[in-house]
Design a protein around this nucleic acid. Structure first.
Length: 289
DNA sequence: ATGGTTGCGCTGCAA
């Protein structure tokens, strides 16, 4: 069973890439983030082509910003938009989470708040959002996979240059502590314990992707029972290349058996010793992500 | 080079 998660940065703009990618990689369960569509607009655009590919669809959107979806060919039961106790921002409930039971696993498609600036109201919201999610997940099924744009780099190895991120969000102790509090397994890191260059996000600007100045912030966090079944876990860098990509690449996890052959490399590019030693000379073009 | 991109939706904000 193949699970994939991808922040598409507008499902409408990404449609010409998303549908061929589904046919190429053939994931059984797909978590999408930043669809930037209302439910009605998503269903109008995607229900027909996704049904042809065999997917059931759940979408939780607001239009303009945020928006998450779950696609499944292995069942899509007990769909929940948002989660119990999800905090509001500025008095509004944002469309950042949808979950369902697919193939026996409780799968969450998540778009964690960015946080913007350390200490800002949005940063406090991010921490509270993660705290509330941990409570909700702990109260749910034991077989669980949190998939999505988590907007936290779990460790310094997940950054092209840790020095460039000092004082920024995504790397603070408070954020990393929240990740650990889930008590789940980061399956890509578990599979590639020493690799940098398993980034999942590269800023559009300043040739960041070309130079492989990336971050690993799109994660699959799985319970032990699910993590024990992982046969392959990788980042589909090819989907970040070419014309009009998302700024994120998909993360793909195979349970029980690794799909093989023509579906692309399951080994990340080799580490680049010295890269992360970083003098801090590379400056972020702006606040993270 | 104190820069650089994309998307939404209309002017500047978010990422």
């Amino acid at each position: 069973m193949r699970i994939a998660t991808w922040n598409v940065n507008s499902a409408k703009q990404r449609m010409p890439r998303l549908l061929p990618w589904l046919q190429q990689r053939r994931p059984d369960i797909v978590c999408l983030q930043e669809t930037k569509l209302t439910d009605a607009a998503f269903h109008d655009l995607f229900d027909s082509p996704l049904a042809e590919l065999g997917y059931e669809v759940a979408h939780h959107g607001q239009g303009g910003y945020n928006g998450v979806a779950l696609l499944s060919r292995v069942g899509l039961d007990d769909v929940e938009a948002g989660f119990t106790g999800q905090p509001d921002y500025d008095g509004r409930a944002e469309a950042r989470a949808v979950s369902a039971t697919c193939g026996g696993v409780r799968v969450h498609s998540l778009y964690v708040p960015n946080g913007r600036e350390v200490g800002s109201p949005h940063y406090q919201y991010k921490l509270a959002w993660l705290d509330a999610l941990a409570v909700a997940v702990a109260a749910g099924p034991a077989e669980v996979a949190l998939c999505g744009d988590i907007n936290v780099a779990p460790a310094d190895i997940d950054l092209f240059d840790p020095a460039a991120f000092e004082g920024h969000t995504h790397v603070t102790e408070a954020e990393r502590q929240r990740l650990g509090a889930f008590g789940l397994i980061d399956v890509v890191r578990a599979r590639w314990p020493e690799h940098d260059s398993v980034y999942s996000y590269w800023d559009y600007r300043a040739g960041m992707f070309h130079q492989d100045y990336g971050m690993r912030i799109d994660l699959v966090l799985a319970s032990g029972s699910v993590a024990d079944r992982v046969a392959a876990a990788w980042v589909d860098r090819a989907a970040r290349k070419g014309r009009l990509p998302s700024d994120h690449a998909p993360v793909i996890v195979d349970l029980d058996v690794a799909l093989d052959g023509d579906i692309g490399p399951i080994v990340p590019p080799p580490s680049k010793p010295g890269r992360r030693a970083g003098s801090g000379k590379v400056k972020l073009p702006h606040a993270v992500d």
